[in-house]
Design a protein around this nucleic acid. Structure first.
Lengths: 193, 193
DNA sequence: CGTTACATGTAACGTTTGTTACATGGCACC
DNA sequence: GGTGCCATGTAACAAACGTTACATGTAACG
């Protein structure tokens, strides 16, 4: 990719992370990026394609970043690791943007549906596979994903990291206690809580 | 309120429930409502005020509807009652619209922040008060709200009511099991699970 | 030096945006 | 029957939208 185009893409990502994508328009974006609407179209072809490239770049960056973190961390429950990663200064705004995209796509799929590569069903499958066998159900996996989504939403709205993190820990604790009172999971099983 | 204005407001609500509010504009709305952009402004003063009145009406309707339902139902855990109510044919689209508003407001408060009467903190407080004393903590209340939000989000995205409802029931079950293995709550306590 | 390719600036295109000016309709009241 | 008031239609406004036409720059290559 041309270096100038790369710069513009970088600036666009920064702009979107700050302003969201609901009311994006070319001229203000261009001004913030130190260029002109003319050049945005020149380099990307259209506004649509610009959006597509930006969101693709975001996705692959997040995938990469998470793979790196999740391979390194071993001393925490994976759900907790994922939370730390998602709420870190580096990734929070990106995740927030993806949640906005998710909601807009749910409201009108015609406009935003095509950008949705983060398929909910895939996440649930991924989490399900990481659960201990006794809990490896759709319901349980869906619940885990929902807890994460809900807490992230709450964090977005209130900015209260302490309380939301405490709630996540509470969830992990509740699941552990339920485990010890119901069907026993084999000791040493890796699981996402 | 003038009856014509009432009709327009009704049609606007229907339109918003169908199309979302991210890309609302007067002329298409007016066409769908069988009137003209001219009259929207005439009756409501401005686009902003129209939106404000519509969202106010939505809020009070939902409050009313929920009060009615929650007073009637006694045989279920309140969280379950709330879920049934929120996902019913009658209320689902309204809730979805409010979630969209919530996210847009979190992304740019300058544009949408003023419409946010559904303060997250208030919900948490409400839920907290309904919890049995042993669990009456911020963390637990936040967790309950998050589970609901997350599951509703998942329902919005996938439409899979069966799976999300099963996940909610799973959550209720997990909390019960944790209760019976940890500090005992007094029998007969009303609580939101 | 001339040519060629890419990058950029200026200005405009046609649409759509929210909003307004102005005229006209119908209906009630004196 | 005239007089106002509320409702509505037509048309326009200025601004912003995504996009394009056209001209100009700059640098590399023969």
């Amino acid at each position: 990719m041309a270096p100038r185009k790369q710069e513009i893409l970088e600036a666009t990502i920064a702009y979107l992370l700050k302003h969201g994508l609901a009311d994006l328009s070319l001229r203000p974006l261009a001004a913030a990026a130190g260029t002109s609407a003319r050049l945005l179209i020149y380099h990307f072809g259209s506004r649509e394609q610009l959006l597509a490239e930006v969101l693709d770049a975001l996705h692959s960056r997040l995938r990469e970043s998470f793979a790196e973190v999740s391979a390194r961390e071993e001393h925490e429950p994976p759900l907790r690791t994922f939370w730390n990663w998602a709420t870190s200064r580096r990734n929070f705004r990106s995740l927030r943007l993806l949640y906005e995209l998710q909601i807009l796509a749910a409201q009108n799929p015609d406009t935003y549906g095509r950008y949705l590569t983060r398929n909910s069903r895939d996440w649930v499958e991924l989490v399900r596979a990481a659960l201990p066998p006794a809990e490896r159900t759709d319901a349980m996996a869906t619940l885990f994903v929902a807890v994460f989504d809900g807490l992230f939403l709450e964090l977005m709205s209130t900015g209260d990291r302490k309380r939301t993190t405490a709630a996540l820990d509470e969830f992990i604790r509740v699941v552990r206690r339920a485990r010890s009172s119901g069907t026993r999971a084999k000791r040493g099983d890796r699981d996402v809580s």
